[in-house]
């Protein structure tokens, strides 16, 4: 069973929940920018939630199904089409052999995830299928997809086979059929354009000037065009230090907001390096990383401070939602 790539799209990579446990060797975690969408997509097709899925950016690829497959698309609305007919996100979809999945481009959000029942059969590297293109490791040949690639699909779980045959019956002689149940909007992270994301204070918060701190929490910052899986460069009012000061390099992580000498913050994202030497003004809370992952260059972000306890409460709340989804899907 394979999926073949007819058009690669802007930047399409295999991602999972990341290469954890190797930070001490300088290896970035990588993995999905929006782990909530990836996990949900996998659960919808009966996979383990951490299975690899395609992370598709802005335009999305064109893919031909070489077998009857069960898929789910979650995250950004890139206007998915099967043989030209619109299909919806956040639900399981049966796709018949020979059907072509394409995308008309983003109307909402930046990154969509395509999970396929059975998962993508690639060799894990250091315990993960996530692609880290800078080192050329993981995913499909360590790189973004290219035209002509053929992705092997793994073995489906029993529940996936059951869901697939139900939907196949419904499809009849049509090329696809959508599941009638879906993950409702109330269940999702607060995705929206120009969001306010919650942050805790960074390790060097006190190094910043009163003016810098005030600007950070009251002004909007634009995501610049030089933004990718490694980090978002922001432009906005200057965030200055009280006085110039050198930081000895220490750990950083996705969500870290660091401020180089030019006073323009950078939010580190999934492919960020493991250590950094710029002062850190804030850390975006884990529960809000999916919201950030769906921002496009040109959008504006604001920051609101919460305590570490509150950040952890939000984290547990999000985990509870996913656990609930898992439980409900198991009953189907």
């Amino acid at each position: 069973m394979h999926i073949s790539v007819k058009k690669a799209g802007l930047f399409t990579t295999l991602q999972d929940l990341g290469r954890t446990g190797w930070r001490q060797a300088g290896i970035p975690v990588s993995g999905a920018m929006d782990p909530f969408a990836l996990r949900t997509a996998n659960l919808l097709v009966g996979n383990e939630e951490g299975e690899a899925a395609l992370e598709m950016t802005m335009t999305g690829p064109t893919l031909e199904m070489e077998a009857n497959l069960l898929i789910a698309i979650c995250g950004a609305d890139l206007q998915p089409r099967i043989n030209g007919q619109p299909v919806k996100n956040w639900r399981p979809v049966y796709v018949r052999k020979g059907a072509v999945l394409s995308f008309a481009g983003s109307v909402k959000g930046c990154r969509a995830y395509l999970a396929v029942a059975g998962g993508f059969a690639v060799q894990p590297v250091l315990g993960s299928k996530a692609t880290y293109t800078r080192a050329g490791i993981g995913g499909f040949c360590g790189r973004a997809l290219e035209i002509g690639d053929r992705l092997a699909i793994g073995t489906m779980s029993k529940s996936a086979l059951r869901r697939l045959s139900q939907l196949a019956r419904r499809a009849g002689n049509r090329a696809y059929a959508e599941g009638e149940w879906y993950v409702g909007p109330g269940f999702l992270p607060p995705y929206r354009a120009n969001p306010t994301v919650r942050v805790t204070r960074g390790g060097q918060f006190s190094w910043f000037s009163e003016r810098g701190k005030e600007n950070f929490f009251t002004e909007a910052f634009q995501i610049s065009a030089q933004s990718d899986r490694m980090g978002y460069r922001l432009t906005g009012p200057e965030i200055s230090l009280c006085h110039p000061r050198e930081l000895l390099s220490e750990a950083v992580t996705p969500g870290t907001v660091q401020v180089p000498a030019d006073g323009q913050p950078i939010i580190l994202m999934a492919d960020c390096q493991t250590t950094g030497g710029y002062p850190k003004i804030a850390e975006v809370i884990t529960a809000d990383l999916p919201v950030l992952a769906q921002m496009k260059p040109g959008e504006k972000v604001r920051f609101a401070e919460v305590s570490v306890n509150e950040a952890q409460r939000q984290y547990r709340k999000q985990e509870k939602k996913l656990a609930l989804l898992k439980k409900r899907l198991a009953l189907l």
Partner: peptide
């Protein structure tokens, strides 16, 4: 524990 990063003066535990 999901990881650790030793640095010049700090050790960060995830």
């Amino acid at each position: 524990m999901t990881g650790y990063v030793p640095a010049f003066t700090t050790l960060t535990v995830f």
